[in-house]
């Protein structure tokens, strides 16, 4: 057994990026405040000192510009890591990240790969209001040619970011500001987590709960509550949204015969809607109840503490959903 350390999510991300930058000189980090300021959320703390200003590069507030710069650099053979201070600000770079990055390989008939990682905070940060609380995954997941990873804990953050950097496709890496200080065990030794491989966070026999990223914490909390009522939940962390490891989900649903999907984005045309549709197609005869989805409410995120809390998925909503599908309501 290799030794592990208890480190923060942000440190795990930095370790992953730094290891890849040591390993491969074509990797560089660029974004707003990543260098001299040491990262708006201190993810890149110390990286400027280690790698110097040619590889850890501050940009002006110019998302379209540097998101596109990364694509050009990737077409030329580099492996950029582009940090968005928040995925909410990726919207002003939508043309670059959705129209250029994921289509270049196809439009060029296979000539130009775009091995790029876009990363930053996604999801409600905590009373940031409507413009700053985006969960972009459902909207962006509609686009072929890109991959989306959404890590749950420091271990996954490091393992997934390293794989994302080595991937030859554009990878959107969705972190959560609310998780950056979460601590977890991370091995000293190098490891990678493949994209497209879900993991079972809790085994159970009565109901499958599928989720991605931060809401998994609410799923785990709900599973504990439900366990005390005698409902034994299996919690699946998809880890990546594209590719989606539907096989792991299907295997679980065939065992539990019911399924709740928890998704922090809005309900209309969402990741959870997609997972539910696929589960219905694949597990129709195994299901005791149709899939129930738990989302953020279909409204812009409010500033007021109580309204924001009310809007987001939480353990109470998940418990209700599980009770519904298991006929324990």
């Amino acid at each position: 057994m290799s030794t592990t350390r208890l480190i923060e999510f942000r440190d795990a991300l930095r370790e992953g990026m730094s290891e890849e930058m040591r390993r491969d000189p074509s990797v560089f980090l660029m974004g707003e405040e990543v260098a001299q300021y040491q990262g708006a959320y201190k993810v890149s703390r110390g990286m400027l000192q280690e790698f110097g200003p040619q590889r850890v590069i501050d940009t002006p507030i110019s998302e379209s510009g540097f998101a596109g710069l990364g694509i050009g650099a990737a077409m030329m053979g580099l492996r950029p890591i582009i940090e968005f201070m928040s995925w909410s600000f990726s919207l002003v770079a939508a043309d670059q990240i959705l129209n250029n990055a994921p289509k270049m390989l196809y439009m060029s008939g296979g000539q130009f790969k775009v091995p790029i990682v876009y990363r930053g905070n996604n999801g409600a940060g905590g009373q940031l209001g409507s413009t700053h609380s985006w969960s972009v995954e459902s909207m962006y997941a509609n686009v072929p040619g890109l991959k989306i990873a959404i890590p749950f804990d420091p271990y996954d953050a490091k393992g997934l970011i390293k794989t994302a950097i080595r991937d030859d496709n554009p990878v959107f890496f969705l972190e959560s500001e609310r998780l950056l200080s979460v601590k977890g065990d991370v091995p000293e030794a190098e490891y990678l987590i493949p994209l497209g491989q879900a993991t079972v966070r809790r085994t159970g026999s009565d109901c499958t709960i599928v989720s991605f990223g931060r809401p998994l914490y609410f799923c785990m909390e709900a599973a504990e509550t439900l366990a005390s009522d005698g409902i034994d939940c299996e919690v699946i962390d998809g880890r990546t949204i594209r590719p989606l490891d539907i096989e792991t989900i299907v295997r679980s649903v065939c065992k539990t015969n019911c399924c709740v999907v928890v998704d922090q984005s809005w309900p209309f045309a969402s990741i959870a809607a997609e997972v539910a549709a696929q589960v219905h197609e694949r597990c129709f005869d195994d299901l005791d109840h149709h899939v129930v989805r738990v989302h953020s409410d279909d409204v812009p995120p409010a500033y007021a503490y109580n309204l924001e809390q009310e809007m987001l998925p939480n353990a109470r909503k998940i418990c209700e959903a599980v009770r519904t599908v298991t006929y324990n309501a």
Binding site: S64, G65, F66, A67, G68, L69, G70, I71, G72, A73, A74, M75, M76, G77, L78, P80, Q96, N100
Partner: peptide
């Protein structure tokens, strides 16, 4: 234009 800047950067 941003892509061109990226080519030059690279």
């Amino acid at each position: 234009c941003p892509l061109g800047v990226g080519l030059a950067f690279a």
